[in-house]
Design a protein around this nucleic acid. Structure first.
Length: 779
DNA sequence: TTAGGATTTG
């Protein structure tokens, strides 16, 4: 009998405790001590209502005071009782009872920071072989009832619009963004979570823990969390949450109507009707106030050049090299494009060989890089994963005629990139498991070939592809914007003619370069006709760092046409930053209309300013005026676009020339106008591509030189806009579908001109596409 | 301490 009531007669227990048990002092209740055959005895000073845990077990918590030291909170300890013993104790225990517990397990107390009691608590259950003896005082009515009134801990929750710097609070929120836990550069795992609540205020929390299990178990945007003891700090002018001692979290599925079951590693938590109500209310609020993405992407629905989250099962894994690791996964559907296979040594491949072979046409190789390698290595074969922000990249190997799709999980954690392990209880996993089992069933019935499986998995995408294909075969995928009355000329005729001439052609796009579309963007100077690569961010950063060495000239601050603000950074570098806000009519403008100049800023600071202000011009002080930085850096930033000047053709003028624009009635701050007054020859972003065109009579290479017209996408915006990159990739996939035979390629109608290029003794005819655009229903 | 959301270009 695990819970025994022992009567006290004449101040002594009527029945003695079993003789093998020895009394343990409170000070010996420490980890590392052997507590076998020991018991602890104390007075019940507090007990909580009986509650149910998420696994359905009863839970009862009480507090015992050490009888030798009866005045200090330090000398009290929490007792957590599980299962039937919890129910039994709850029924009989009274405030003031002498309580004896044996066969307990010692655990670190998660509430020590809050209740100031003993650093450990005792875990007690029948399964653990615990025993409880309660010395009962004579029961009376009235007084003792009052004394044993239960005290439920009451938590107050702060709304996200009421957070104050330096406080520790409890809060609820709907997950708007999250990074699944990853290995930080310090000693802990880190997870970043952005919450919103009905006050419409966002809070980004940075959570650290050495124990992966104690970080919130968030699986998707829209999940609801409850954080206890999160510390609020101000960072960059915004409130930020960070883990504090005793941080604890519960996570709930955000689906309206789903069971309200908390996901937590904590065995002890309060969760009652009131909390359930809060979760349900937040679900309803989120459903109409947050955009939560629809059904997850499947392998059968992947598009090249996209980032997506994949819910899948791990079939195999292998080391590749120091900075990358291979995961072979499947989700039961088939990718409609040829996929790459990462070459690895057979002995390095972990996983069931037979299954790997059976599923060889359904698994895809995901190569994970850098910081994800450590986590990937630790994954168990057969586990269910959600891989966040996988990149599908189109590429072709040297010896391949057609391109394939690659799956990369790049390094870093931007956009929540990472790997999460989903428990089998997760509804998405349950659904996936059921689907995978049906696929495996089909497989075992048809061991000879995978065809029926493949068809099942891809039926939708095959029909999609077919209809798309038909459209492509019927109509040309590019159209002329002029010269419609001209007749087509065969490529063979063009190749045998002298240049320069102009032709209308009908041809297929066999291949194009560069395959990496971002490499097609160049900067062009319309004055000297030079082309150059778009500088990368590192070069800009370097120039900014170099310019920060120049001390700001105070005499150049606060002039008639701009107001200046200067401050020194708090870090050890003590950097001086000056921002000059250009005025209009002696007034500062709204941020979205404001041009500002910055001295001494970092790349990150400049970038942040571009999000808020219309134009940002990085400058440095000279003796008599501000001046532009080296022209390898952008001289102007507007939104996401960096504007560069031609080093050869520009003659930079003093910055005060800008005041003429500021004095205009409505300064529009057009880059061309700014460039002009500053003596800068503006470089323009262009697409430069080489199309290999064929028409059955011959093949020729034609260059595409396009600012915007062909793709109907401004070349200036493509590098900073991922959506446009995807759009452009999809356009190219329609013009030249990956993995397609020659006969199945669509027709292009183009206008091309031939021209002569003489380089010393060498003479060559080149072709350029012009007055052509991608058909309206393709873009 | 770590990271502090805002895709790589392997």
């Amino acid at each position: 009998m695990p819970v025994q009531l022992l009567k006290i007669v004449n101040g002594k227990p009527e029945t003695p405790l079993p003789s093998h048990l020895q009394k343990e002092d409170l000070k010996h209740l420490q980890e590392g001590f052997d507590h076998t055959n020991k018991y602890f005895q104390g007075i019940v000073i507090l007990h909580y209502p009986l509650t149910k845990l998420s696994d359905g077990r009863d839970f009862f918590k009480l507090v015992l005071q050490d009888m030798n030291n009866s005045c200090s909170r330090n000398d009290s300890i929490n007792i957590c009782i599980y299962g039937k013993m919890a129910e039994d104790c709850a029924r009989v225990v009274r405030h003031g009872d002498t309580f004896v517990v044996a066969g307990f397990k010692l655990e670190k107390s998660p509430t020590v920071g809050e209740d100031g009691r003993h650093g450990c608590h005792l875990e007690v259950s029948e399964e653990a072989g615990s025993a409880i003896y309660i010395y009962t005082k004579p029961r009376t009515t009235g007084a003792s009832e009052t004394a044993s009134m239960s005290v439920a801990p009451k938590y107050a929750y702060t709304s996200l619009n009421c957070l104050k710097d330096g406080t520790i609070v409890n809060l609820y929120g709907v997950v708007k963004f999250f990074k699944p836990p990853y290995v930080s550069k310090g000693t802990d795992y880190c997870s970043v979570v952005t919450l919103v609540d009905p006050s419409n205020v966002k809070l980004t929390c940075t959570l650290f823990s050495g124990n992966l299990d104690s970080l919130p178990k968030i699986y998707k945007v829209g999940d609801i969390v409850r954080f206890h003891r999160i510390k609020i700090r101000e960072y960059n002018g915004q409130m930020q949450g960070i883990t504090s001692v005793g941080f604890a979290s519960l996570t709930f599925d955000g689906t309206v109507g789903a069971p309200v079951v908390p996901r937590t590693s904590s065995k002890v938590y309060t969760f009652m009707d009131e909390e359930q109500k809060t979760v349900e209310e937040l679900r309803v609020w989120a459903a109409s106030n947050l955009s939560i993405s629809g059904p997850a992407a499947k392998l059968s629905g992947v598009q090249p050049m996209l980032f997506f989250d994949l819910t899948c099962q791990l079939v195999g894994k292998a080391k590749v090299d120091g900075s990358s690791f291979l995961l072979k996964v499947w989700d039961g559907t088939k990718c409609p494009y040829p996929t790459w296979k990462v070459p690895v040594e057979a002995r390095d491949l972990e996983g069931e060989k037979i299954l790997l072979h059976q599923l060889r046409n359904l698994t895809v190789d995901v190569l994970v890089y850098d910081n994800h390698v450590q986590l990937a290595k630790s994954l168990k074969i057969g586990s269910f994963l959600r891989i966040y922000s996988i990149h599908t990249k189109q590429a072709s190997a040297v010896d391949e005629d057609v391109s394939h799709i690659e799956f990369h999980l790049h390094g870093g954690t931007c956009y929540g990139r990472g790997i999460g392990v989903l428990p089998e209880s997760n509804p998405d996993v349950k659904e996936l498991k059921a689907f995978l089992e049906s696929v495996e069933l089909a497989d075992s019935q048809n061991m000879e070939s995978m065809s029926s499986v493949e068809l099942d998995g891809t039926f939708n995408s095959v029909t999609d592809l077919e209809s798309h294909l038909q459209r492509c075969q019927q109509l040309p995928v590019t159209v002329l914007t002029d010269h419609q009355d001209l007749n087509n000329t065969e490529l063979k005729t063009i190749l045998n003619s002298t240049a320069p001439q102009q032709y209308r052609i009908r041809a297929k796009l066999r291949t194009y370069k560069p395959q990496k579309l971002y490499q097609s963007i160049k900067l062009h100077c319309s004055k000297c006709k030079s082309l150059q690569e778009v500088p990368d961010g590192d070069g800009f950063d370097f120039i900014l760092q170099g310019s920060a060495i120049t001390a700001p000239n105070v005499e150049l601050q606060n002039t008639s046409w701009y107001d200046s603000v200067m401050w020194t950074t708090q870090d050890e570098k003590q950097r001086k930053i000056v921002i000059h806000f250009v005025k209009h009519d002696e007034m500062l403008q709204q941020p979205e209309d404001t041009l500002l100049m910055i001295e001494g800023g970092t790349l990150k600071e400049v970038w942040k300013l571009t999000k808020i202000f219309k134009c940002v011009i990085p400058v440095r002080s000279t003796e008599d005026d501000l001046e532009l930085l080296d022209l390898s850096a952008p001289f102007l930033l507007q939104g996401n676009i960096k504007y560069y000047g031609c080093k050869q053709c520009s003659t930079p003028k003093p910055i005060k020339s800008l005041s003429s624009i500021a004095a205009e009635q409505r300064p529009s701050w057009e880059p061309t106008e700014i460039a002009q007054v500053l003596g800068i020859e503006l470089l323009q972003y262009v697409f430069i591509m080489k199309f290999t065109l064929i028409d059955g009579t011959g093949a020729l290479n034609a260059y595409l030189f396009d600012y915007e017209k062909f793709f109907q996408i401004p070349a200036s915006e493509i590098l900073s806009n991922n959506f446009l990159q995807q759009k452009m990739q999809m356009t190219m996939n329609t013009l030249c579908p990956p993995g397609r035979k020659l006969d199945d390629l669509p027709w292009l109608e183009c206008f091309i001109k031939s021209y002569n290029v003489r380089d010393g003794m060498k003479h060559q005819v080149y072709y350029q596409i012009f007055d052509t655009t991608v058909a309206e229903d393709v873009v």
